[in-house]
Design a protein around this nucleic acid. Structure first.
Length: 257
DNA sequence: AATACGTCCAACCGCCGAACC
DNA sequence: AGGTTCGGCGGTTGGACGTAT
């Protein structure tokens, strides 16, 4: 459960404490107190650093330290205090006699965090999702405006219509003109959010074989220049996120067909 | 039975502010 | 005033142990 004991390059012992070390530290602190943690290990006959001694005393050896077996009242109190103060473990610990900040922090991460998550209602979940959606829309709308300003009027823009209820493949687009010898490079994107039929208003998930993990995709850019590097999609890559990664000078100017 | 994976927690680490020189 | 030391805090990690496959 704990790190195996070892000595660092300065001969300072680290890792799990032995019963003998515990006894030495306990005896010394009980007899002399701990006015100077840095000097303490020297006088107590320990090869530990002061910090390690302090932690061991506070979290484990202190006589009034309470360990394990949290009561319902303690759990409720921790939840309340965490809601009020966030990750201020020392502040929370100050309100629970005998509990240390480290122990409360561990208890939070292993038990209470889950409790808190489970308490989130369906309504709260929906609110969160809708908040995320509107943020996504705002971001995409910015990109859309940018595109609208930059696509020359003689460029034909086409986005295949979405199937109104489909969450399957939503559109196919190409970055080059097709000829008999050179079929179009097609990319399929799965609409992730609202199916409102607007290609640019939603993020899409690259979904077909051409966009397999590790494959790179070359986009043609209006004005005839290309970004200085290829974009790589992984299996969960959001289309609009990829666009956002372009340097400022190469803002998304996908060449639509 | 062997292996892989997940959980839990003691202990470590880096950072920060206060106290001291 | 500036540098150093120290204690305290929060985040992270190592690895024992339990459970699933």
């Amino acid at each position: 459960m704990v790190r195996a004991p070892f000595y660092d390059e300065n001969g300072v012992k680290k890792g799990a404490w032995s019963a003998e070390e515990d006894e030495k530290l306990k005896a010394y602190v009980q007899q002399h107190g701990h006015c100077n943690w840095r000097e303490l290990p020297k006088y107590a006959g320990l090869s530990r650093c002061g910090k390690s001694c302090r932690l061991r005393w506070i979290n484990y050896l202190r006589p009034d330290v309470k360990r394990g077996n949290y009561s319902k009242e303690e759990e409720e109190l921790i939840l309340q205090l965490h809601q009020k103060h966030g990750n201020k473990w020392s502040l929370i610990a100050a309100n629970l006699s005998g509990r240390t900040d480290n122990e409360i922090k561990n208890y939070w991460h292993t038990h209470l965090k889950k409790v808190k998550t489970n308490k989130v209602t369906k309504k709260q979940q929906n609110e969160e999702i809708s908040k995320q959606k509107s943020t996504q829309k705002r971001e995409i709308s910015g990109i859309k405006t940018n595109l609208a300003n930059q696509i020359p009027s003689n460029q034909i823009f086409e986005s295949s219509p979405f199937s109104p209820l489909s969450s399957e493949i939503s559109t196919v687009c190409s970055n080059q003109e097709s000829t008999e010898d050179s079929p179009p490079t097609t990319f399929k994107f799965q609409e992730l959010y609202d199916n409102n039929g607007d290609f640019w208003a939603n993020p899409f998930l690259a979904d077909n074989l051409e966009a397999e993990s590790g494959n790179s995709m070359n986009f043609d850019f209006i004005g005839g220049f290309n970004p200085p590097y290829d974009l790589e999609f992984d299996e969960n890559y959001l289309f609009y996120q990829a666009m956002k990664e372009l340097p400022e000078n190469y803002q998304p100017q996908l060449y639509p067909y």
